[in-house]
Design a protein around this nucleic acid. Structure first.
Length: 188
DNA sequence: TATCGGATGCTCT
DNA sequence: GAGCATCCGATAG
């Protein structure tokens, strides 16, 4: 699964369930980044910060950005190649109360507003906060420690493809994919 | 509903 | 010193 190219992995991860210590949901939106890709953190070669992207496929790459947020990726392709997939949105399935507490710093009400449930995980930094992912998780491995990926069971989900969000270089490269109609997708 | 700016600190130029 | 794979609240329409 993780041994594919980053665009292949980005599509394959849609519909899969991502769980961190049993808390998480269905992956609804992803973006691919490759070493030859000007928008990628790995474009200018390996550094201490991006080393996880060059590690074994399935390695977790967590980075700090905008002075206050972290985002998570899974390394793709093969060891030595700086390529990976950013997880941009999940549809919560397990541990809703725990996610709510981490995101909003208060217990989840008995009848939570739908709008608020969507805000739980409809963005790359939001879902990391909800799942309790921090920089300490950098270099973790999928399906070995607290991170688990349960492959997509439904073969026929409708997938949309667009340009990536929030980048300035290689802005035309259509390497963002999301599940059509899913309410947790961060942007249309 | 859409757009705008502030928060906040690490990384690389 | 500039830029950043973002988020949130405020403001205008």
């Amino acid at each position: 699964l993780f041994a594919g190219t980053s665009p292949e992995l980005a599509r394959a991860l849609l519909g899969a369930e991502l769980l961190v210590d049993g808390v998480g949901g269905i992956i609804a939106e992803t973006e691919a980044y490759a070493q030859y890709d000007e928008a990628s953190h790995t474009f200018r070669g390996q550094t201490k910060r991006n080393a996880a992207m060059f590690d074994e496929p399935g390695t977790v790459y967590v980075y700090f950005t905008y002075g206050m947020h972290v985002c998570m990726n899974f390394s793709a392709h093969s060891k030595g190649v700086g390529e990976g997939v950013l997880i941009r949105a999940i549809e919560p399935t397990r541990g809703l109360e725990e996610m709510w507490q981490r995101r909003f710093k208060q217990p989840m009400p008995d009848d939570p507003p739908h709008k608020r449930l969507i805000q739980l995980t409809n963005g790359p930094a939001k879902l990391c906060q909800a799942l309790g992912v921090t920089l300490a998780d950098n270099h973790e491995r999928a399906n070995k420690g607290r991170f688990h990926i349960i492959p997509n069971q439904k073969p026929d989900i409708a997938i949309m493809q667009t340009t990536r969000v929030g980048i300035s270089r290689a802005a035309d490269r259509p390497w963002r994919w999301y599940v059509a109609g899913n309410a947790w997708v961060s942007k249309l």
